[in-house]
Design a binder for these strands. Structure first.
Length: 460
RNA sequence: GGCGCGAUAGCAAAGCGGUUAUGCACUGGAUUGCAAAUCCAUGUAGGUCGGUUCGACUCCGGCUCGCGCCUCCA
């Protein structure tokens, strides 16, 4: 049975879907004003594993992951670039989808964009006003009145008075309470705008998720996820909006993934210490990145360094070696009665313990190397559940073994010619020449392995 | 200031109240013409001070250090 840590209760608890056999999942996706960085990648991979594991567990999953394509930063960035907003967001969405495909992140069932749901947002804001939970300010903005929602703070464990004590909220003369947040912003000159009962304007950030989740999943669904930083205020505000409007529970399980760090500091666009996925893919194969992310638990902080990625690369190569040595094995459906399979399932059922699941993979790799029949096939099958070992093994090793190398067919032909020359020398017992060729290739990172009369080459 | 999280062997990272996590790196051996891959062998780590217990890395408390949220942020 699957157990998940629920931010709302601060406990790991058994997962029981609202509707048997079916899971409705919503994850806060990207704001598309820039490329995805590794922290985004972590979030997206973590929830991809959840999605895959729910499906592997037999659930029919409806997975919604939104795209925020209208907000302050987008407007600002488009102006800086001197390009239309749609051009910027379209470019970033295409780039994101490329990055995610390379990480083997499966596409969600629905990937709605905020700008497609503005009418729904206006309807929800009207409902909140009717219920006395929201009010228009004199400036054309509409605010949510947090003091009128008794449960405000239940997700983040904050009380309004504690928040007030922090005094970090910007003063706004049009708000009744400094902690009230914006549902609708009146348009400033030159900004994108939609007509509304409060004049032309655009939606605040939080309202879109309440509306898009309702549109695809209804007003009460199973799991809502996102990065830890969204716990407050974004998810707290979503609860205020959705539960305030509909008068019943919004989400059963809230999941938040831990941060990716650089030099023990959160990786974020605000801090400017981020590496984009595209930057990292220049050095390391995307699957190394995925493997690196899965070696840590999703709720723990994970520190990024090239050295850690290099460790991950070596480990992944160990697994690929098994597949290379068992070229005929295919993936399939796991037999959950097996010892390794049970350990694997136990690990993932325990709040997605991917480090332990990965350890099971290494156990199977070891069994396979020792000649245990079927171990390689089981390794491949379980790896598939995690979205790993997707590449053809020989190519994996010859194209860089997890490093990004730029080598074309000519290079390949040259190497194979040298390998053939060396083989001829070996037949003549001319080991001096053979070793000279080995050394020359080794100097460019190519390792030759003589096995059973034939020589395989790979990059290291 | 308020709320919360963490501290595990050289590095990374899990489970578990008493039996090998796992990976990377390192060392010795086997294997190999030499290598590589692989196999075999080798690591008693658990911030610190107390408490509970027959027994604690694992539960409880203090302390120290690090981190996060409280403002846009995955």
């Amino acid at each position: 049975m699957l157990n998940l840590f629920n931010t709302l209760t601060r406990r790991t608890e058994p997962f029981v879907p609202i509707e048997p056999g079916r899971v409705r999942l919503y994850v806060c996706g990207m704001t598309v004003y820039d490329r995805c960085h590794l922290g985004h990648g972590r979030m997206l991979v973590n929830f991809d594993v959840l999605y895959r594991w729910l499906r592997a567990s037999g659930y029919a999953v409806t997975y919604v992951r939104n795209i925020t394509d209208i907000d302050d930063k987008i407007i600002e960035r488009a102006a800086q670039n001197g390009e239309p907003i749609e051009a910027l967001t379209e470019r970033m969405i295409v780039a994101m989808q490329e990055d995610l495909a390379r990480l083997w992140v499966l596409p969600p069932t629905h990937e709605p964009r905020a700008t497609e749901h503005v009418p729904g947002m206006i309807r929800l804001i009207e409902m909140l006003i009717r219920k006395g939970l929201a009010y228009p300010g004199r400036n054309g903005d509409v605010y949510y009145s947090v003091r009128d929602f008794p449960d405000y703070g239940k997700l983040s464990g904050k009380s309004l008075d504690d928040l007030r004590a922090g005094e970090r909220v910007a003063r706004d003369e049009f708000k009744r309470d400094p902690l009230d947040f914006v549902l609708w912003k009146s348009a400033k000159p030159g900004e994108p705008r939609w007509p509304s009962p409060w004049g032309e304007g655009r939606p605040g950030w939080h309202i879109e998720c309440s509306v898009m989740s309702e549109c695809f999943l209804g007003t009460h669904f199973d799991i809502h996820g996102g990065g830890h930083d969204l716990q407050f205020p974004h998810h707290e505000n979503e609860i205020a909006q959705s539960e305030g409007a509909h008068g019943h529970a919004f989400v059963n399980v809230w999941m938040h993934n831990g941060f990716l760090r650089v030099n023990d500091e959160k990786m974020s666009k605000s801090l400017g210490n981020f590496f984009t996925l595209a930057d990292i893919f220049e050095k390391f194969h995307p699957e190394v990145v995925r493997f690196f992310l899965l070696r840590g638990h999703y709720r723990s902080p994970l520190n990024y360094t090239d050295g850690h990625l290099e460790d991950a690369r070596q480990g992944l190569n160990t697994l690929y070696t098994v597949l290379r040595d068992h070229p005929t094995v295919q993936g399939g459906v796991p037999d959950w009665a097996g010892v390794a399979e049970r350990a694997f399932k136990h690990a993932l059922d325990d709040d997605l313990n991917t480090p332990e699941a990965v350890a099971v993979l290494f156990g199977l790799a070891h069994d396979a190397h020792r000649g245990e029949v079927g171990a390689a096939q089981r390794l491949r099958t379980l790896a598939e559940v995690l979205g790993l070992l997707n590449s053809a093994p020989v190519e994996w090793f010859q194209k860089g073994a997890g490093l990004t190398v730029q080598a074309g067919d000519e290079d390949r032909e040259r190497i194979e010619r040298l390998v053939a020359q060396r083989q001829a020398a070996r037949v003549q017992k001319d080991f001096a020449t053979a070793d000279q060729i080995r050394q020359a290739l080794l100097a460019e990172g190519i390792v030759l392995e003589d096995k059973g009369g034939i020589t395989q080459w790979r990059r290291s």
